[in-house]
Computed example of a mutant assay.
Amino acid sequence: MSPRGVAIPDLRERLFAAAERVVARDGAAALTSRAITAEADCGKGVLHTHFAGLDEFVAELVLDRFARSAHQAQALEAKVGQATVAHNLQEVALALMNALPPAVVGLAMTRPAAALHTREGLQSGAPAFEAIQHAFTVYLQAEQSVGRLPADAESATIALALVGTIHHLLMTRAPGREEDTKVTTGRLLDVLLRS
């Protein structure tokens, strides 16, 4: 255990990763402040020192993972002309869905205080689906400019449809169904990019 009074480097990420491990191993019902701090090997009160409670913690975990995914989506522009358009988009879509265990998403949506904190974070500009949609649109337009996507393809509409599907799958998928998600996003991209 970390010594009392000594700063813990990357504490937020340490707690977030611990929470994900607890949920993956024991399920959402096992996610308590004590389970998280025990898994992170730090003092019992550390979580409450840095977060107002478990609901705020869960919301901040979700917002953090959305922000990471938005950052990854912005990196798509560097992939223009590489691999295939479908591959590049699917890679980011799957990374977003894998960034959050379904049980954590469920907690963030079913615990009223966590849902409220998440919604407030998104409304105040935390990067999430809107930023990802914008990054997809910019990427698709860049692929159009180099001729890898038809000039008449509606980039913004394709991006919206892909983000909407990701959102739906993120909220409804069952744990352990990653292959189904990959197949679904692959089929969607085949349809969207064919037009």
Rank of each mutant, 00 (worst) to 15 (best):
E143S: 08
A78E: 15
L189P: 06
E178V: 09
Q141L: 14
A126P: 00
M109R: 15
A24G: 10
G176D: 00
L54A: 07
Q72V: 13
E77L: 14
M109I: 12
V191T: 14
A17E: 11
R12C: 08
G147Q: 08
I166V: 14
A40I: 03
Q74V: 03
M97E: 10
A19S: 09
R65E: 10
L192K: 06
L76P: 01
Y139K: 03
L188S: 04
G121K: 00
H167T: 14
A159T: 04
L100H: 11
L11H: 05
A70H: 08
E143H: 05
D190G: 09
Q141A: 11
A35C: 03
T110N: 15
E120T: 06
A73P: 03
L96S: 04
P3I: 04
R68Q: 13
R194M: 12
V105P: 00
R173V: 00
R177C: 10
L107K: 02
L89N: 01
D64K: 11
V146T: 10
R12E: 12
V80T: 13
G43D: 06
L100M: 15
L11P: 04
R194A: 15
A30P: 06
L54N: 00
L96M: 13
A29N: 09
R68S: 09
L107S: 01
T37H: 02
R119D: 12
A131S: 13
G27H: 02
S145W: 06
